[in-house]
Write a protein that binds this DNA or RNA. Sequence first.
DNA 1: GATTATTTGTCCGTATGTATA
DNA 2: ATATACATACGGACAAATAAT
Lengths: 259, 259
Amino acid sequence: MTLSGDGEETPGLHAEPAGFAMERAGGVALWRQIAERLKADIRAGVWAQGSRLPAESALAERFGVNRHTLRRAVAELAAEGLLAARQGRGTFVESVPISYPIASRTRFSEIIGRQARSPGGRLISSSRETASPWLVEKLRLRPGESVHRLETLRVADGVPISLSTSWFSAERFPDLVSRYAETGSVTMALAAHGLEDYTRQRTDISARLAEPEEARWLKLAPGAPVLVNDIVNVDGEGVPIQVSHSRFAAERIQLTVES
Amino acid sequence: MTLSGDGEETPGLHAEPAGFAMERAGGVALWRQIAERLKADIRAGVWAQGSRLPAESALAERFGVNRHTLRRAVAELAAEGLLAARQGRGTFVESVPISYPIASRTRFSEIIGRQARSPGGRLISSSRETASPWLVEKLRLRPGESVHRLETLRVADGVPISLSTSWFSAERFPDLVSRYAETGSVTMALAAHGLEDYTRQRTDISARLAEPEEARWLKLAPGAPVLVNDIVNVDGEGVPIQVSHSRFAAERIQLTVES
DNA sequence: GATTATTTGTCCGTATGTATA
DNA sequence: ATATACATACGGACAAATAAT
């Protein structure tokens, strides 16, 4: 978690007063805690892509653990594709978690495309159901109106990124499901119904631990954190057209808000 | 966390196929995972305060674990004061964790603004140190320049909300720490150095598990998720003046971005 | 090429925590 | 409460690959 570089040792919070011993805390293994801290450092830019990490022995001393324990943490991140250890040379940052900018015009395919990864989404399931009072308010529907509900999994380079549940007015977008199934794109499915453009109205962000079913779809270890994104998209007149609830694999993503 | 109303049951996702077996994985003990899920359920209102939980054997079967393992999870929540097990009577919800939906009504900039400009929280510690290469780049300093580092804790109604680490150029803002100590405000401390206004340049949001030290300050169970905010503030000319790294207790907070 | 220091990889054993029966 | 199996964490020793001298 140390945000500072590796040059000097920073006292106080976050910096490990050399030899400070972490504890195996409350059912969370030490190696898991260390893996999380290393991952956070990589995400925060402490070590850039391609750069070399301090030697295992140095890191182990910094975290106050045995080298084997540190190696277990590195092995975990290596399995996730974040690090690569090479005998005799060192351990290197292989890839940095994708950054997902939140702006008024957020489009998954564009974001992933920009970062030179192949986007992909797949429809897990869909259903047509009567809008709950909650949805009636959010989408400004008439009580009793029905909605399409889509469960989708978004993937980049074969790695699951997010699991989403989306709702659309079934009256306004009757063929949304089939159009989405054909194109794999919400933008194109909406365009087929004459909607030229839409924008993000608001985004609520929270975090929690993944549920087992979510962990399975996102290929996460049970107990891994997910970033939860509740969004509302509106058309040109400001009328809500999409309500969506996405769970991102926190270890593979970072949300960015530019002001 | 299902965003749909409570009327219908959602097939597939989120529903627990009875007898579904959780696995011990990723260095997080089974009992810890179950404790987190029970806590989330209590927070979500599945069981109200004072109500009785299903019998241990029933819960154990639902989670697909041995009764001892479930008892270990219940013991954890009992130690936290959430549950109380009474022999012969059952296990009862003692108290429900408070949730601060700061976000549902507050603008993202205001939340973070409050956090950065008028901490209202307390200064845990401060230090002066040589800027790491990482900070040199972020704050556009000269190598070897020194920075102020402030650790602050924000509290609402006596409940810890966030833990922040901030860095400022010590050359440009020599008296920042004492001014901050006097006023309790970053804005006023900066104004004392002639800085009229500053704006948020970017915010990176990620999530991970709380570290032991963070869990202690935020009064979280080890293994609970934190929302991590990495921010950069700039002056009128776009020169970075503050880099800050905040950890929010995810179970008590939600961030909102309005577009 | 040979030597040496550094770094990761693998093996041994021991103690403790976790999970089931 | 006991027994068993596996995961976690530590400590030490040595092998293998790499880079610099």
